[in-house]
Design a protein around this nucleic acid. Structure first.
Lengths: 207, 207
DNA sequence: TTTTTGTATTTTGTATACAAAATACATTTA
DNA sequence: TAAATGTATTTTGTATACAAAATACAAAAA
């Protein structure tokens, strides 16, 4: 009956979903035995998953007290955006230096469905946006960069709302970044990618 | 006799030392029971420490096979330097935007001992260099940035040698960065910090 | 009433137990 | 000899056991 392949992995994924969906809410204590029995596993593989999530800034551990779902304040969200600015800017630069048709096609594919649409579905666009930004990192082929980019995938959950700016505003910016990459203009690509993040950050708390 | 405060923490530190010092060498398999009894603990807290090290890129896990001391190839080292370029560049920018006497003093303190020295001790300078670069990150007060900067602290071990360039060459660059920060020239500070890392990276494999 | 103290319960941190997978190694087969 | 097969040993992954710390809560004291 006991089969152990990689229980920690599915637990990790499940817990991440539960946190990002709000099923486990920010600041909530994760009582190990409770979650373990909820998921039908023991505390050992659960702990592995929790440690992985701690390293992704989704869970916070207070020694001898327990693990808590991380809650983010304004400063932390701002700081995360600043990190994204640095990392995505560098990614755009790298892609510009090594761009080819395949890379451009993949990036464009994210937003092609929205070209000249009158009404853009926010949910769909939001997913495309997330896809684009993580693709920007992935396509560089820089593994360490991808490893430290985990912030990007949670930004809209972190901010507590969906899109920060309208598709009408950001769609153009996205294509601008892609264009700079395709023209192999590294400085321009980096500048635009950074501006794109910076604008959202500045809007986030100053409106 | 059983006292549990935080055994994982000392194990983590000890293991990190063992890896960075070469006592455990790159690619070596970490047989859990062996290391656990070597350190006089059980596999449970050892595993916690190993997972933390895995997230810092010092240990690599192959499911059902074991944990191995990470070994770095040229591409990975280059990629790490590229990450450093992005992160330290941003850090220098942030410091320039918020610099004050205290920050400048702390940064200068790293290298003041070497001013107008005829012969600089390489070991001492190497430590000062490491201190400077992690201080650059720390002083920004950006926690997420610090969290993803773990690369910086291992760079000379990663490259398999000590300093990449001579103190005569880099000392000036360091003071240049500090000066730009003190002048609150953000663009200049970022540019110099990035150049500083880039030069080392380019020299690393192309000499 | 509010605060303090003591006791019961819960929860964490570590050690240990055990099944299944991986590995090592000897024996057999070509 | 080299390859293949089977068996013993090692090692991992998970579950469980248990001590110590943290917490909850009730009774006593202010």
């Amino acid at each position: 009956m006991i089969e152990h392949k990689n229980i920690s992995q599915p637990i990790y994924i499940k817990l991440k979903e539960m946190i990002l969906s709000g099923e486990l809410e920010q600041g909530e204590k994760i009582v190990q035995e409770r979650i373990a029995s909820l998921l039908g596993v023991s505390r050992t593989p659960l702990m592995k998953a929790l440690l992985a999530l701690e390293n992704e800034y989704l869970v916070e551990s207070i020694p001898r007290r327990g693990m808590y779902v991380k809650s983010w304040d304004k400063k932390e969200i701002t700081d995360i955006y600043i990190c994204r600015e640095a990392l995505e800017g560098m990614a755009a630069r790298l892609l510009a230096l090594s761009s080819n048709d395949n890379i451009i096609k993949q990036l464009q594919a994210c937003f092609n469905p929205f070209i000249s649409k009158k009404k853009i579905n926010l949910e769909t666009y939001s997913k495309a946006d997330e896809k684009f930004h993580s693709l920007l990192i992935k396509l560089t082929g820089n593994e360490p960069l991808d490893k430290i980019y985990f912030f990007g995938k949670i930004h809209d959950k972190v901010t507590g709302r969906g899109l920060i700016r309208t598709p009408e505003e950001t769609l153009e910016e996205h294509f601008g970044i892609i264009k700079a990459i395709s023209k192999k203009n590294a400085d321009e690509a980096e500048k635009l990618a950074r501006m794109h993040i910076k604008k959202s950050r500045e809007l986030l708390f100053n409106q």
